[in-house]
Structures are given as structure tokens and as C-alpha cells.
Simulated scan of single mutants.
Amino acid sequence: MEALHRTVRLLYTGQSQRARRFRYGLIVFDAVTIVYFIATAALPTTPVMTALNTGLGLLILLDLVARLWISENLRRELTRIYTLADLVVVLSLLLAPLITENFAFLRVLRGLRLIHAYSVLRDLRRESLFFRRHEDAILAAVNLFVFIFVITSFVFVLAFDEEGGVAGYVDALYFTVATLTTTGFGDITMTTTGGKLLSVFIMVVGVALFVQLARAIFQPSKIKHKCSECGLNRHEPDAVHCKHCGELLNIETEGDIGT
């Protein structure tokens, strides 16, 4: 058992070529499942889809158990938002065959798989120099992407599920984007008190996320690298010395410092 534990830990945290390939495979799997849950959010449940969802649930559960098993701080790992989201998603997938009603609610829970994108970002930060160089812009874009599709799932269930199907989901996405951009076409509106409060929430948070994304794109890009002397963790990609304390830096590069 100790040998198996060491093997799993090295796959998730090691620097060998095998470990890196394994982690890239996990990144691809996470991305595919996120796209799958978005694409199937409005589709009717079929036996094939139920079987596929169960299989995905088991794979996600296996990954989750492995991460918890090798964690040095189990309590902290259990309180991470993407760990909690994965637990909810696994339950929604594995319990779905036993539930005959309220599949719309389960679609919302599966939408929480989007939150696992933040775990993917953590892995990319470790694996990709390109990501570390453009981390702020990528993170801001992911924040906006996750917000849009999680909220779309809730709007779809609350206001458009009676229509069902892809058309209803597109209406929910259309309403969400029109609201968070404050475009306000008015052709699709919320009439209930709860719906109006949800619209206010979408507008306030959506505008903040758009501003964050614009600022990350247009402000000078910096790379994340903690100075060993003063702790400053944002520097120019081609910095040699820390601009705060003058300490010599050793920022990993690929030889391209831009212009």
C-alpha cells in the first residue's frame, strides 16, 4: 500500500516525464468534462447519456479520492471550493439513475464542474511558463466564463426549463449575457421578485468581472515569481533584479523576453 501511495503521489506532484504526461491528461479530461456538461445541459436524458454520466462520475470520484489520499492536509483539501464542487457533481451523476424527477436541478449541480477549472489553472501554473506569464488575463477570463455558465444553469432551471431543450438553454444564456453587460434589450425579463434580485446580482458581479478582464488585458503583463528577500511576487518577465529591494531574481524563461 505504501508503494501504491508513493506512486500516486509522484504522478500528481512529481516532475518526471510520466508524471507530467499524467497531469496533462488530467487537464484534458477536466476540460472535456466541462465542455460536455455545458453541451448536454439542455439535452433530454437517455440511457446512453445516463451510462456515460455514471462513468464520468466514477472517474471524477477516482481522481478526487486520489487527491484526498495523497494530500498532506486533508482538512484544507476538503475545504477547497473545487473539491466541494466535485463532491456535489459526483453525487449528482451517481444518484441520477435513482431519481425519477427534478433532473433540471441535477443539471445545475453538474454545472458546478466549471469550478474545477480553478484546479486546472493551479496545474497550469506549475506546468506552463506561458500561463505564468499571462496568468492575470487568463484567470480573469476564466472567472467570467465560469460565472456566465454557472448562472446560465440557474437561470435555465428557474425561468426557462418549462420550454426545455437547446432553445431554452440558449434563451437562458442570452438573458444572462444581456443582463451582465447591462445591454437590457427587454425581450426576455424576470417578473418575480427572486428573478429581479438575480438580475441585479448578475449585473453587479458581471460588470466587475468585465472590468477585471479588461484591466488584465490592457495593463502591462507581469510574471508571478516570489522574491526571496522581500516577498514581492509580481515582476516584469525580463526582470533581473527585484524592483522593490534589488535582490537578484532567477525567473524561469524560454529565452523570449518580448519587446
Rank of each mutant, 00 (worst) to 15 (best):
L10Q: 14
Y12L: 14
T13R: 06
G14K: 01
Y24Q: 06
I27G: 15
V32C: 05
A41Y: 05
A41Q: 07
P47T: 00
M49A: 04
M49E: 07
T50M: 11
T54V: 15
I60N: 12
L61K: 07
L61T: 06
L62W: 09
N73E: 03
R75C: 05
E77G: 04
L78C: 00
R80D: 11
R80K: 14
A85I: 03
V88T: 14
V89M: 02
V90P: 10
L91K: 02
L95W: 03
L98K: 00
N102F: 14
V108F: 06
I115P: 07
L124K: 00
R126D: 12
R126Y: 14
L129S: 03
F130M: 02
F131P: 10
L144T: 13
F145H: 12
V146E: 12
V150P: 11
S153E: 13
G164I: 02
A167T: 09
G168C: 00
Y169P: 05
V170L: 08
T176N: 06
M190C: 09
M203P: 11
A208N: 08
V211G: 06
F218I: 13
P220H: 01
S221G: 06
I223E: 01
K226E: 15
C227H: 02
G231P: 15
G231N: 07
G231M: 04
P237C: 09
H244D: 15
E247S: 12
T253S: 11
E254V: 06
E254G: 13
